[in-house]
Amino acid sequence: MNLKVNHISKAFQTNQVLNDVSIEVDKGEILSLTGESGCGKSTLLRIISGLETPDQGSIVLNGKDITDLSPEKRKFGFVFQNLSLFPHLSVKENIFYAITQKERTPKRLEELLSMTGLTGLDARFPHELSGGQQQRVALARALAIKPQLLILDEPFSSLDELLKTKIREEIFDLLRSLHITTILVSHQASDAFLIADKLVVMRHGEIQQTGTPSDVYKNPISPYVSDFFGASVILNGEKSSEDLVKTSFGNLKIDNDRIDTFQLFVRPENIQIGSKNDYNLSGKVLKKEFKGPHDVLKIGNTNNDESISLETERCSIQVNDFIYLKVPEEKIQIFK
């Protein structure tokens, strides 16, 4: 199975929701479509599923243009944010809702109940189930049609944090074992990191970056992407010489032939607290916060007009201490 989304654009009146978006999903691949609320990811999902029609572009499945194909003919399975279970139908009836009478066999029901952890609950109604069990019913219903593509739209947003972690891991383990081609829409980076083979980061209706979770985390192409996927340290830099960059925390040796002013990016875990004899940045501790097994230090520059936050192991460093920081130059990226 191969799905290609080609140059999709969509506007609602004067609001341009998607602008020239292209993605590709291969057989067995799990793709996570992520970005802040309102970035266009749910609209893109509705276009892929056939619930919306694009203004421009095409959806191609296995080499065939399905842009105008109705949702029921695409054979895609869906788990929506609100789950959309029928309250007057039992678990069995909800699961069997989208398949033919011929397919509704006891063996098929038992397979679906077993793989989703619902054995013995087929006669219950949605209001008699926990939130996690309702989640599994929605998944079983999506799997019942043996979908070419499974689409999950913010499937864990209604669950509390503890239950979400447990259910998320169970569902993702199941999808991995079944090798089901999946598109997951989520604004949670943790969802993407846990399961995705490929990440697509969206902002303002456009794709910002595509890559593996590891690559996007380690090598973001913009401050937006870097902040979206975890804590980051971004410093204003100014070219001082051919291989020297000046920051308000000190000078860094970086081979830079780009513009004269830019931003430097580094993940906090790549910054080490060093000694006076082994450092390239320095600053004053303005604030120290207790975070359980870690401390978070807010460090200001000499003029107190720029600061960075750094998570460390529990340490004896105190507010107003002057500290030295070692930043490996190979871990630094430049943003224009």
Rank of each mutant, 00 (worst) to 15 (best):
G40V: 01
P71K: 06
R258D: 09
S240W: 15
F229Y: 09
I30N: 00
L112P: 02
L113G: 01
P293R: 06
S226Y: 08
S240Q: 15
S240D: 14
L163V: 11
E289P: 00
L286H: 00
H204T: 00
N15S: 12
D55G: 14
M115D: 05
D68S: 15
F229N: 10
V266E: 08
V200E: 06
S90C: 12
L121N: 12
G57H: 09
K291E: 15
S9A: 06
Q134R: 15
D173Q: 04
K239A: 08
R108M: 07
G40K: 05
I234E: 12
L162E: 11
D321M: 08
V296N: 09
P223I: 14
V233Y: 10
D305I: 01
Y324F: 15
F80G: 04
D160V: 07
L152I: 06
N256F: 13
D305G: 01
G131E: 03
D153N: 11
R314Y: 12
V319S: 07
E238S: 11
K287A: 13
K102F: 09
I332H: 00
T182L: 03
L31V: 15
P223D: 15
S84H: 11
G28M: 10
N15W: 01
P223Q: 12
I8T: 02
E289Y: 05
D122M: 03
T212S: 08
L175D: 02
Q209A: 07
I95A: 03
V233M: 13
E29K: 03
K298L: 11
T43G: 04
Q318Y: 10
K10T: 11
I180L: 14
V185S: 03
L83H: 12
G211H: 05
E72C: 11
S37M: 05
L61Y: 05
S90W: 11
L163Y: 04
Y97I: 13
F12Q: 10
K10Y: 14
A196R: 07
V216Q: 07
